[in-house]
Every structure is written in structure tokens, then in C-alpha cells.
Amino acid sequence: MRMTPTVIIVGILALLAAITLTVVYWPYATRDITPSEIFRERSSIENTGRKIYLQNGCVYCHSQSIRSIDWGHGAERIAQSGDYIADEPIALGSQRTGVDLSQEGGEHPDDWHIAHFINPRYTRPSSIMPPFQWLAMERIETLTRYIQGLGLKDADRRMERQIYWKQEAIKAYEAGPEQNAKWLSEIVPEGWRNIPNPYPTTDASLHRGQKIYQNFCIGCHGPIGDGMGPAQPWIYPPPLNFTILKDRGISGGILYYQIMNGITGSAMPYFKRDLESQKIWEVGDYVAVYFINQSDANTEPRGIDAAWEP
């Protein structure tokens, strides 16, 4: 084969045309634009927020595409093409330096996001996201509207829940410590309230609890558990001051349940995906021993001691 300029130019152009037709144009021509069951149009403020998201390269660390294998992330809803039909450009992302955001809307209340943008470590001590305080409040709030819409109709349902329970949480907080502690106990299902922490307090368990506390809790509840962590100025109702809970009937079961499930409406997230059972019991006991100064660990009813207990 003699490679003349004509052979090269005509050859490569013909190949590119044929291949582009097959792998780019054909998928385009046969694209499915049926909306998925969660699809809705974005509001104009959400669209403005999306521009801020794209301008600032959020897409380089956050994917918006949950896969069937993402069961650690909670593949409650796996991405479908009908979710993306209004996205121009599409922001699937190629890296998860941070978490996937496709169903982020309504996972937290607005104030959690604001504190998180001011400095991500305020609400997530082990985060490696840079701070976005420089965006200033107006843009942070606009961006928050976009984030809270991620998940579209599913996000709207979660947001309704956040807004309802935020009112309740504020009411309880404003009624004073006594009422607040009562509310915090009563929103836990009956069975859980009567369970003491089934494991004994040991030096090792306290050390493990402290480590978990530092990695997950310290930003809001603060190093001494008084609710004065760096996130505090941004969050309302403010993070709980554990020291008010003494003699107010807080069992190990209540602590466990609230850490596991979070308190929707308040900035307290659920930790059931981040922490396994033992870690939740131990961080709960750390809070009980050091900050409430009252632990029911290993008291009756206690069942049979686990095999590892000393």
C-alpha cells in the first residue's frame, strides 16, 4: 500500500465519519427521552445553583450516578437515563474524591449544608473538601437549593420531611432543656428506650469511642460535648449540649437509636451507613461517660454477656 497524501486524508476522514456515525450519532438518534418516575423540571434558582456547581468544578470530586454495585452508598435508586433528560451538560462525574450526590437532596436540612460549605470539616470532620466560604452567603444558599433538589421528586419528598421535623425540633429546643430532652427520648420507639448499653465500659471501648467521636461528631457537638463545635453558629436548633441530659432518663438505647437513625429535621445525620453496631454502642458510651457523666453500660437487663467480655 502506497501512502500518498490523498490516501491518508481520504482514508482517515472516511473512517472517522463512519465511526462517528456509529458510536456517536446513532446513540444520539435513538436516544430515549422518556422521563423517569422521579423526573421533574428544575426551578430557576436550582438551575442557577447548578451553574455555580459546574463553574466551581464540584463535578471533579462528586459523581451523580449511583451504580448497582453501590450498596455501601445505599443504592436505593440506581441511575436511569430518564433522570438526566434536562441536564445540559450532564454532570455524571468521573471521580469520587467525595460522595455521590445524585440523591443528596433532603439527606440533610439546609443549615447542615450551609455549615458544610463554610467549612466541610464543621459537619464532617474527616472530609477533604476545600472550604467554600468565599462563595459568600447568597451563592452558598443558591447552591444549596440545587443540592437539595438532587434526586428530583424523591428529593422533594425528603425535603418535606426535613421541613416538618425541623419545626418540631425547633419547638422542642425552644421549650427549654427539660422539654427538649423529653422530646429527644420520646421520638425514639418505645422498645429502644428501655435498653441499656449491653456492653461494659472499658478503657479500650472508651478509646475507640473517642476516635469515632473525633472523626464524626466533634464538628457540631464540640470537643467537650457542650454543642459548641465550629458548626454551631450555622445550625438551628443548635447541636445538642450533652451535659443537659444528666438525670433525664437517656438510656444507651436512646443514644444508639439517635446515632443510628439521626434526627431528621435537625442537623444530626444518620450514621448507620458509616458506623457498624459496635462503633455506635461505643461512641454512645463515650458520650454517656464523658459528657453526660451517667452511663448505663452493662446494667440490667443485660442478657447473656458476649463471649469477648472480660
Binding site: Y28, R31, D87, E88, L92
Partner: peptide, 12 residues
């Protein structure tokens, strides 16, 4: 936008 709409945008 310099982009297409939806999934075809990712493909291109």
C-alpha cells in the same frame, strides 16, 4: 452550554 442534553452528552 457547549453540551448536548442528557446521556448523549456523556457519550459525545
Amino acid at each position: 452550554t457547549g453540551a448536548l442534553l442528557g446521556i448523549p452528552d456523556a457519550i459525545v
